[in-house]
Amino acid sequence: MYSSIAVIGFDLPALDELLQRSRVANAEADVTGLLLFREHRFLQLLEGPESAVREKMSLIAEDPRHERVRVLLEEHVLVRQFPEWTMGYAADGALRAASVPGYRTAFDDIDSLPDNQVGGPVASALRELIRWFRTE
């Protein structure tokens, strides 16, 4: 799971186009996951073969539309969390209304962490968020 800041503005049509292209590319690479976008921030979970996920992360890190790409949670799991989702997506308003555990109301705690040092409450919140999406 990583976070990044969008350098360009994404309105709903631009985000829909990004999702459409990502879903096709992810299906071809056998990558599944979840994308959240709020206040110019991406929070994305990618899962699949390690080489495919690392390739996607390299592309994202080099993409000029992103800055401050940070891996927040990296785990090897035996079973995918979202095997049917080439890229699941949820809008900010729906998440707020649902009182999602682990939902970020601010990013101060993530921003204040040194690069490559994430754990504790941030990792716990991310795991709760993943569990909620998986079951809901």
Rank of each mutant, 00 (worst) to 15 (best):
H76P: 10
M1Y: 04
L19G: 03
D92K: 05
D92P: 03
Y2D: 00
A25P: 12
I130M: 14
R68G: 07
R104D: 14
A97R: 12
D92S: 07
L18S: 12
A27Q: 12
D108V: 00
M1L: 15
E55V: 00
F133S: 07
D30P: 00
E136L: 00
L12H: 11
V53C: 08
G102Y: 03
V118G: 03
A98E: 09
W85L: 03
A29C: 06
P64E: 04
R21I: 13
F37C: 05
G93W: 01
L46V: 09
L15M: 15
L59Q: 13
R38H: 01
F10D: 01
A27L: 14
G119R: 00
L45H: 13
H76M: 14
L45K: 06
R65G: 12
L43H: 01
A98R: 09
D108S: 11
L126R: 02
E47P: 01
L95M: 12
F37R: 00
G48L: 02
V24E: 06
D63H: 01
E55F: 04
L73I: 08
R134L: 09
E84D: 09
D30T: 02
A125P: 06
H66Q: 09
W132P: 01
V53P: 01
S112D: 08
S4N: 07
G88H: 04
A106Y: 06
Q81E: 14
A25R: 14
R80P: 10
R38S: 11
S4G: 01
D16N: 08
R70A: 13
L19C: 05
H66M: 08
L12E: 15
Q20G: 12
N26W: 06
S124K: 10
F37A: 07
G33F: 14
V100R: 12
L126V: 14
Q20L: 13
